[in-house]
Amino acid sequence: MSTSSQPQFRYTQTPSKVLHLRNLPWECTEEELIQLCDPFGKIVNTKCNVGANRNQAFVEFADLNQAISMVSYYASSSEPAQIRGKIVYIQYSNRHEIVNNKSPGDAPGNVLLVTIEGVEAGDVSIDVIHLVFSAFGFVHKIATFEKAAGFQALIQFSDPETASAARNALDGRSIPRYLLPEHFGSCHLRISYSAHTDLNIKFQSHRSRDYTNPYLPVNPTAMDGAMQTAVGPDGKKVEFQSNVLLALIENMQYAVTVDVLHTVFSAYGSVQKIAIFEKNGATQALIQYPDIPTAAVAKEALEGHCIYDGGYCF
């Protein structure tokens, strides 16, 4: 028997052929859900990895009696429902079928349309928007733009439930003052559901990000003060100093990661941003420091050196 203080069942709910399962293992698969529920009847639909922690799911049986059978079995069993050794809490869902509703407005979707009132583009960075909304779950993509309604952003989550949790918590609220420029007052968020389900992000930039694809090409405007070059009198390229370094990573024996680069470059100063991308078949990275002198010290120290013996070479 479970000794948990959290009840495995709620008896006050009206029976439904859709069951709500909680406390699932992280990234629980559809196959694992079906394996747990299949002995009680035919599964016609599932919805996995929902909720802010992605540890909930919905399972829809073909018949109401099949769902009642599963709830009744585990309610009277000495062994609780488990997946990967974790106790799964089961209850009837308030919904009577699983519907993937993609209509806009108030119909839940996985993409939010956020209007940030009282600001202009550039007043609130995409990094601040990501920080605020990622408190409710993994943010897949963000695209910002200006419309007649003002400065807006599309924010894509993995599922409507996570998006709904963010909307319910933030609609009508303000971005915390400590994340805003000093001269700003409050800026209110107006949030609705978008008709989009998957944003098409072609570049990482100061206006758009795809957090699921670290190898997406970087738009030159992705970082302020990106390295500029000019042609000198002798016909050779002359580099202007910048607070952003462009690193060409050669002789890689293992896949390079942002964490590895951050560890190496932060030894010479505070690293503000890092972006990795592929260009002309080579792996490159942009590393942004707060000022030019710090970037110059890092460039002098690291150019031509290896991270590991026989490993990455800049």
Rank of each mutant, 00 (worst) to 15 (best):
M1N: 13
T3C: 09
Q8G: 01
T12W: 10
T12V: 08
Q13I: 08
V18E: 03
H20P: 02
P25A: 08
P25L: 04
E30Y: 08
Q35I: 00
G41K: 03
V44I: 15
K47I: 08
A57I: 03
F61S: 01
D63Q: 11
A67R: 01
Y74R: 05
Q82C: 04
G85V: 06
Y89N: 10
Y89M: 10
Y89G: 03
Q91T: 10
S93C: 11
H96D: 12
V99S: 12
N100P: 09
V114M: 07
E120C: 08
D127E: 14
H130C: 06
H140M: 12
A163V: 07
A163F: 05
R173N: 12
Y178R: 11
P181Q: 00
H183R: 11
G185C: 00
G185V: 00
G185I: 04
S194M: 00
I201L: 09
H206Q: 15
Y215G: 04
N219M: 09
N219A: 11
A222P: 00
G225A: 11
A230H: 02
S242L: 05
N251K: 06
Q253Y: 09
A255D: 06
A255S: 06
D259T: 12
D259V: 09
H262I: 06
H262F: 14
T263N: 13
V264K: 07
Y268C: 01
S270Q: 14
T283G: 02
T294F: 05
T294E: 03
A298I: 05
H305S: 15
C306G: 11
G310D: 11
G310I: 08
F314C: 06
